[in-house]
Computed example of a mutant assay.
Amino acid sequence: FDPGRVVLASTKTDKPEPVWVAELAGATLAIDRSYAAVALAKRGGPVAERALADALGKDKFWAVRGTAALGLGAIRTTTARDTLIRALGVERHARARRMVARALGEFVQDPTAGAALATVVERGDASYFVEAEACLALGKTRSQRAGELLRLAATRESFTDVIRQHAYRGLAEARDDSATGLLVDGLRWGRITQGRRAAANALAQLIRGRRDREARDVRERIELLLADKDFRVQAAAVEALLVIADPAAVPALQRMIERELDPRLRRRGKEVIRDLGEGAPVQEELRRLRDEVGELRNLAGALRERIDRLEVPVETKKKKKKKNR
């Protein structure tokens, strides 16, 4: 149905697993192979994993290889992880390599995945964007070396400050509270806009739900950005205050609304004030639920891998019995 996805529509297609495998291996158009990779990743299992691994190693188009990598990251088995680590070292196309690094970030608390990403962050990459993606993924793995290496990466200059942006985000993902000083320094006027916005967002992620003295100081520092000369930094500060979810930020937002002429800032400021009044406790609950979902995904991946290992000997025994008959 609809080869090449040329029809403007939202569709949900369910096919038998062998059909998806054949489509991933032999469809003429890359977009059809990519959709097959996504479908197999949702199914999971050893057959889907083998098909995705083959596509990652053999497909001619970088986007299909990248989609296969993301699929292996979603499956989260040790064999999928090892396949991704090998691909990270041999993949030549920067965009596909970037997606491989992103997929490895799904292996939270996995020292092997963390070590592979740490190597990329430490040595660098020919592509700024691959190096940046590795920084964010390393933070997501919560590796013990994440804090040290991401601080090192944050000193590197790059196009649109992309490495520093992702290093800041990685520190937030790693839950590195000791990085607060570095991130506050990243807010300073004179630094590249994208990096300043990323620092504000990372600080908000780190202190979200906290009400201690350090969190108050950080919130007040972000409130100062509401009067920044850069509109984009002002907008990032508004969003950061929403993430922090502290109703004490309402007076600063009200002052911004009264002072600013830009209707976009005023409208968003009013929306954030409304949300802080209605759902401040909900933000902390969402954070807790996200962490629990991540842990459950890792557990599900480990259980799936164990089940797959148990199924193989059972199938082998059945085949032997048939032969004996």
Rank of each mutant, 00 (worst) to 15 (best):
A9G: 07
T119W: 10
E106I: 05
T28P: 10
L104D: 00
F61S: 14
K322W: 12
P46G: 12
V314L: 15
G139E: 04
D176C: 11
S143L: 04
V90A: 14
R287T: 14
V243L: 03
G124K: 05
R219Y: 02
V47F: 15
V314T: 13
Y128S: 14
A153R: 03
L171C: 04
G139Y: 06
R309S: 09
L242S: 04
K321E: 15
R98N: 11
G105I: 00
R5T: 07
V243G: 01
K321S: 15
L136M: 09
R264Y: 12
T193G: 03
Q144T: 15
V7T: 11
V243P: 01
E23V: 11
M99P: 09
T13D: 14
K318G: 12
L182C: 08
N298D: 15
E305N: 02
L224F: 05
L149T: 02
V312W: 04
G147M: 08
H166A: 06
G139Q: 01
P46F: 11
T11S: 13
K319Q: 15
P46A: 14
A137L: 00
E148Y: 08
A113Y: 02
A30W: 09
V121M: 01
M256I: 00
S127C: 02
R95G: 11
R288C: 03
L224E: 13
R50A: 15
A113L: 03
D262Q: 08
A249M: 01
Q165S: 07
G105T: 01
R102I: 11
R86L: 12
R81K: 06
T13W: 06
V108Q: 09
I257V: 05
P111R: 02
D14C: 13
W62H: 13
R86P: 09
D176R: 12
W20L: 08
T78I: 12
R50D: 15
R213P: 11
P16Y: 05
R210Q: 11
F107C: 06
A245D: 04
Q165Y: 04
G57P: 02
G190W: 04
R210Y: 13
T79L: 13
V282S: 14
R175P: 06
G294F: 07
E285Q: 05
A87F: 01
K229T: 14
K229P: 13
A27I: 08
L182F: 09
H93D: 13
L310I: 10
A48T: 06
G66A: 07
R191E: 09
L265H: 00
R306A: 08
